[in-house]
Simulated scan of single mutants.
Amino acid sequence: MFLTANKFMARMGDLSLGLTPAAVARLLVTGRRAKWDGRRVDPRAQVAGRFFTSLRIPATEARLTAFREFFDALGTRSGFADTGGVGTRDIAMPLADRSLTGRLYSPDGVADGGPLILFFHGGGYVLGSVAGYDPICRRLAKLSGHRLLSVEYRLAPEHPWPAPVEDARDSWTWVQQNADRLGIDPERVTLSGDSAGGGLALVVANHAAATPQDNQPAALALAYPAARVTLQDEAEQALAGMELLLGVSVLEWFKKTYTAGRVEATDPTMSPALDEDGLRHMPPTLILTAGFDPLRPGAEFLRDRLAAGGRAVELYEYPTMIHGFVSLGRHFTEADDAIRRLARYVRTCCETERGESRQAARGGIV
């Protein structure tokens, strides 16, 4: 059975999660609860994941617009409720050949000259927006105590690869050149994002590593990033086959729409964990994963590559969760724990003093 995504369906999905206690969810999935490699999915996460994969993949421009509205509406309805204490202003980011926009989040009482989190939203490079990710960004800014800039990068199919990559890289350069306007220290900028946005954060870090004489990211704080999207090993295929939000057809749609036949999955801008040169210079990195996420093996591959190269890296898994659970912060306590972990990590990495001690925190790269 396929459903049509729209704002009404987002409201129904949010209400169904809110009105489905864990005991009821367990009854709904009795005998069909997903299991993998010693893990058992949270019943409510399984209900949410199957709801998303029951949505009809859009085949027309009108349906894509409705799908984007659904995705954003679900993010704002199901996102964190406690997001006060943070001011916002939308800003223009003029570039040589185009202009991006972003939303700057400033926690109450934040001082000028402090750190910044440069954030890229998820959505498979096809869905997602600054507005839809507002609850996550407000919560992360509040808990970290740092300013946060959420970037409205271009999306496929209107702007396929490499447009999102170009926007992510250029936003990093723009931030470095406009630190005074933002009221931040350009030496203490953390790259963050989830899913596709986490992949973009990694691409930017690889890009910055190519010019080691310039400022480097202070840290990477990633939630289930698109680190390697070849999706060829047994675990990735099995997890995709469970159809828990990121099912086979959804992944194929994202890939086909974003690449437009222009690039292979092994390209470092698609799978940044395969960028050997960039990984040698990665800043301290925190990776959060979900047990029932087809992107988890790729994130673990990234962790292993960074550790083998002597980089500072931590990975924390939420074994019962599915991809995208942080966007459902109103319904899962794991989502709030994830944001708190990201915030603590960012604070720790950005508290290091400038100069030699900061270089040491990045693994000795000078």
Rank of each mutant, 00 (worst) to 15 (best):
H207Y: 15
V165N: 13
P135Q: 01
R305F: 03
L3W: 07
V366K: 14
A223P: 08
M321D: 02
F332A: 03
P94Y: 09
A360S: 10
G324Q: 07
W172H: 09
P157I: 11
A92C: 05
G183N: 11
A59K: 13
G199R: 08
R362F: 00
G310A: 13
G123P: 08
T4Q: 13
R354Y: 08
V326S: 05
S99I: 11
G79F: 01
T83C: 12
R11V: 08
T266H: 07
A210W: 06
V151M: 07
P225V: 10
E152Q: 15
P212R: 06
A209F: 06
F80E: 05
L100V: 10
G145P: 02
E69N: 15
P164L: 09
R11M: 11
P162L: 07
L155P: 03
V29T: 15
D293V: 01
T285M: 04
I287Y: 03
H331D: 05
R188M: 02
R32H: 12
R262K: 15
P212L: 08
S327E: 10
M93G: 01
K35V: 13
P217Q: 04
I57H: 04
G298D: 01
A5R: 01
F332S: 02
R362P: 01
S192F: 09
A299R: 06
S144G: 12
A23N: 12
P135R: 00
M242V: 03
V24N: 08
R147S: 10
M93A: 03
V326M: 10
D277R: 15
K256I: 05
V346L: 00
L200M: 10
D185M: 11
V366A: 15
A290I: 04
R340Q: 11
G13A: 13
A223L: 14
E69V: 08
G193V: 10
R11G: 11
P58Y: 00
R340N: 13
L231S: 00
F67S: 01
A5Y: 04
G109V: 05
G31F: 02
V263G: 00
S357A: 15
D214T: 13
T60V: 12
V326Q: 12
T60S: 14
A221M: 08
E317G: 13
L55P: 00
R358G: 04
H159F: 12
Y105V: 08
P21G: 12
A141Q: 00
C137I: 02
E158A: 15
A81T: 14
G13L: 06
A201L: 09
V86P: 01
R103E: 01
A163S: 15
A131V: 11
F332G: 02
E234K: 09
F70Y: 15
G109Q: 08
D72Q: 08
L148K: 04
A179E: 14
G113A: 11
G79L: 02
T65W: 07
S129L: 04
Q176A: 02
Y133C: 06
T333Q: 12
V204L: 06
V41I: 14
R68K: 12
R56E: 08
T320G: 03
V248D: 02
L116R: 06
P212F: 09
R262T: 15
W161L: 10
A308I: 06
R44K: 14
